[in-house]
Amino acid sequence: MTGGLWSWEQAAAALPPILEGFRVTLVATVVGMVIAAVLGLVIALVRRSAGRWLTVPVGLFVELVRSTPLLVQLVFVYLMLPSVPALVIGCTVLGVHYATYLSEVYRAGIEAVPRGQWEAATALDLPRARVWRAVVLPQAVRNTLPGLGNYAISMFKETPYLFSISVVEMFTAAQQYGAATFDYTEALTMVGLIFLAVSYPTSLLVRRMENRLA
C-alpha cells in the first residue's frame, strides 16, 4: 500500500520504540503519582494545622505552581539542574505540580468528614494525633479515592510534556520516529489511540468506584 495515507509497515516499524516509551510513561505516572499523593497530603495538613508563618508561603507556592504551565516548570527545573537525570526531574515536577491539585482533593475529603466524628473523638479524650490517624484520615482517604484516580489518569495523559526535557516516553518516541522518517502519521495516531485505550477504561473504573462510594 504505497502512496496511501496509512501504511501498516510504518505502523509495525514504529510500534517497538513506542512500546519501549510506554514503559517510561508508566514509570513517570506511577512515580509522579506517589510523589503527588504524599506531598499533596503534607500540603493539605500543613495548610490546615500550621501557623500563618507556614500556611501563607505554602499557600502562595501552591497558587503559583497550580496556575502556571507544567511545560514551563519542567524546562525551568531541567535547565537549573543540568546534572540531575531528566526522568528524575520529570517525575518530580509532575509530582509537585499534581500535589497542588491533590492537596485540594485531600482538603475537601477532610472537610467532608462529619463534625460529629471530631466531637466524638474529643469526647473520648483521644490524643490529637490518634484522632487524625485512626478516625479522620481513614474516612478522608475513602472520600478522596475517586479524585486521586481522576488525577492519575490526567497525569498519565500529561506525561507527553516530558518531551520538552528529552525524556523518551511514548509520545517522544513517536515524535523521534516521525522526525527520523518524515512520517508522523502512524506513530502519532497510534500513540493517541494507546492513550485512549488506557485512559478510557480506567476512567470507567474510577466512575464505578465513585458511584460505589457515593
Binding site: 495523559k157 500529561e158 507527553p160 510534556y161 518531551f163 509520545f171 515524535q175 516521525g178 508522523y184 502519521t185 502519532l188 495516531t189 500513540v191 493517541g192 489511540l193 492513550f195 485512549l196 485512559s199 478510557y200 476512567s203
Partner: peptide, 16 residues
C-alpha cells in the same frame, strides 16, 4: 478528545 491527550492532538493536527 478527553482520552487522547492534548499534546498528541496538537502535534497530530500539526504534523499529520
Amino acid at each position: 478528545f478527553r482520552g487522547t491527550s492534548l499534546v498528541v492532538q496538537l502535534f497530530w493536527l500539526f504534523y499529520v
